[in-house]
């Protein structure tokens, strides 16, 4: 399937849990299918699909906040432990780094998080992100600026050894 990786990466970065991310990605595909008549062929299909996935993830996070957490329910496993790609040391490092980055992202509010993900993983412009999320370009600039500040503060406050290889490159 052409867009499975794109949609899954977005939902995973937004939700931080592989199982929930797969559910959300599947729901995004189904919603796209059910609303095909609303798709404007002048726009990119991928952008339209990611916009559906983004809004669905934001809804999920907001609903999740309203749900009481049961104490008997086990906590979701750490993302690095649930990866299905066993392999060499490099892959393990990638997984650790990815999980550490995920930890940082999880601290952001959903509106900030989606802007960061669309900007840094998909290279969308401010205008494109604004269109996808139904907001203004200046709002996106502001969200990204604040998100970067928040991430920098978190990075400062918690030393993450797995991030070192990435940071040394800067």
């Amino acid at each position: 399937m052409r867009y499975e990786r794109d949609v899954f990466n977005l939902t995973y970065r937004m939700l931080g849990n592989r199982g929930e991310a797969e559910d959300a990605a599947q729901e995004a595909f189904l919603r796209a299918y059910a609303n095909l008549d609303r798709y404007d062929p002048a726009r990119s299909f991928k952008t339209w699909l990611l916009s559906i996935a983004s809004n669905h993830c934001i809804d999920r996070i907001r609903r999740r906040r309203l749900t009481w957490l049961s104490l008997e329910e086990p906590l979701p496993p750490h993302p690095a432990l649930t990866s299905d790609t066993p392999g060499p040391e490099e892959a393990t490092l990638d997984n650790e780094r990815s999980a550490a980055v995920q930890g940082l992202l999880d601290e952001l509010s959903p509106d900030y998080r989606v802007a960061v993900v669309l900007r840094y993983w998909y290279d969308y412009s401010y205008a494109e992100i604004a269109e996808m999320l139904g907001t203004t370009e200046s709002a996106i600039k502001s969200r990204l600026f604040r998100a970067r500040q928040a991430l920098a503060q978190q990075l400062e406050s918690r030393p993450l050894s797995s991030l070192n290889p990435a940071l040394e490159g800067s």
């Binding site: 499975e4 990786r5 899954f8 990466n9 995973y12 970065r13 592989r18 991310a21 797969e22 990605a25 599947q26 299905d84 790609t85 990638d94 780094r97 990815s98 980055v101 940082l104 960061v116 840094y120 993983w121 970067r148 500040q149 991430l151 920098a152 990075l155 991030l163 990435a166 940071l167 490159g169 800067s170």
Partner: peptide, 20 residues
């Protein structure tokens, strides 16, 4: 800020489980 930019830009794409 540069550290954050670099970290985000170098983070890998996640792939779903087989059979997804």
């Amino acid at each position: 800020a540069e550290k954050v930019e670099n970290l985000l830009r170098t983070s890998p794409f996640e792939t779903p489980s087989p059979g997804f």
